[in-house]
Design a protein around this nucleic acid. Structure first.
Lengths: 239, 239
DNA sequence: CGCCCAATTGAAGACGCTCAAGGCTTGTGG
DNA sequence: CCACAAGCCTTGAGCGTCTTCAATTGGGCG
């Protein structure tokens, strides 16, 4: 059931049988969450991390006036809050966007991995560094990209990330998000997301209907977004 | 000379004599850079990381139309590109903003630390996770904060980060940045930064003159920014 | 003294926001 | 089986924050 997680690790490099065994036995339990459930609240002490197996989750931060910024989306295979292992508490909430199945990994087990398996430790360190790389690409979107490019970026990124775990192909992928969700990812309003989506649809680039992203013209989508997948670090390496 | 770096690590927890020795001997050389020098170019293979000893550096990403987003500022004590150890290349450029003194740490030495010193490895993993936390706070700024709040946020964050290494007090700190630099941090134009700085000055909150940030009213500054320093993880912990 | 870079200010315009209303789909209960 | 509610999508109109373009001022330095 954690195949997606292993697939994500293997996108970077080999996972030895011993490492795979260590990962499997680090999982203490499986769990199911409904949509819109807060998995981890900001500034609350954590004693475990969560691997997303099925569904979509997000990290977000709020301002007092209610304006919300989603700082990252999580797809199956992601360690949604691995960074809480070193941080002890999170600086953001983690919430499900759809019903989700997850695997729980106690921090104590992660600690033992860092004591005994340096290579696997580096792999997990690497994974949190990818999260940071995604944050940086989103900073570029939020700070400098136009509305259309922000949405194009988001759809491009998700397509690549979902392809790694076999949940997308070149034609599209399931994405059961509302326009409000998209607006909170892109720093726009839902109204403006709606208008921008219409433009992208009328230009024959992408469409989102029935909870599914349909990529009509990937080349144009990437060009609009100035999307360069290298920031996702998908090439294989020695670790 | 790496005292600032040790001070930053010690803000989170103890550094044992053995760990301190490992850090010191991991440094292969010192180096001096002029202002506006690119230290690491995006997508170019790296074989070392860089500790900033003196001066200011930044990470930035550009769009094709020339619009630039600075994704993080680095102050003395920071490991500016520690993440290149696991990533092998960076997804952004790293540049000096002022003349800088740096210490070079070959990745091979970091690798040996991960093989032999799990606790120090966790400390460094933690440091890259702080970078990610800063990225998230900036995402919130870029996506949802007003211009005034973005600048207030930036000045608040830098004051706290510089205090850790003894380069700021409650009255202010040296910050030899131009308004163009500030605009690239905050996703604004230099013109709008200028106008917003004037507002903050006229309200008696902060001022930036002669390369120095003068904090006249820290409480108001934090309130405008909705600044909560917990995202910088300055409390001491077992590691 | 004059050059260069940064800061500053003005005026006009654009991109995205706010407020508001209407339509569509889905699920629920009478 | 239909009425109704709830949530999401869609569209219109007006507005505001921030941008763009341009010109002027100020300060540091060779």
């Amino acid at each position: 059931v954690i195949e997606a997680h292993l697939a994500k690790l293997r996108a970077r490099g080999e996972v030895t049988p011993g490492e795979e065994q260590a990962i499997r036995s680090a999982v203490s339990e499986m769990h199911q969450h409904p949509a819109d459930a807060v998995i981890a609240r900001a500034f609350v002490e954590q004693d475990h991390s969560t691997i997303l197996l099925e569904g979509l989750m997000c990290r977000y931060k709020d301002l007092k006036n209610g304006r919300r910024q989603i700082t990252q989306l999580h797809v199956p295979g992601d360690f949604a809050d691995l960074h809480s292992f070193t941080l002890k508490y999170l600086d953001h909430d983690v919430m499900t966007l759809t019903p989700c199945r997850v695997a729980i990994v106690p921090h104590e087990n992660l600690r033992q991995i860092t004591e005994a398996l340096p290579r696997l430790t580096r792999m997990y360190w690497f994974q949190t560094n990818i999260d940071a790389a995604i944050h940086r690409e989103w900073e570029l979107s939020l700070g400098r990209r136009t509305a259309k490019a922000r949405l194009a970026m988001l759809f491009s990124e998700l397509q690549v990330r979902l392809e790694i775990v076999g949940l997308a192909d070149e034609r599209g992928y399931a994405l059961p998000l509302t326009q409000v969700d998209l607006s909170e990812c892109t720093g726009l309003t839902n109204v403006h997301v709606n208008r921008t989506m219409r433009e992208l649809r009328e230009e024959g680039v992408v469409d989102l209907q029935g909870g599914r992203v349909i990529v009509h013209d990937r080349a144009t989508l990437w060009r609009i977004a100035e999307f360069d997948p290298r920031y996702l670090y998908l090439d294989k390496r020695d670790l």
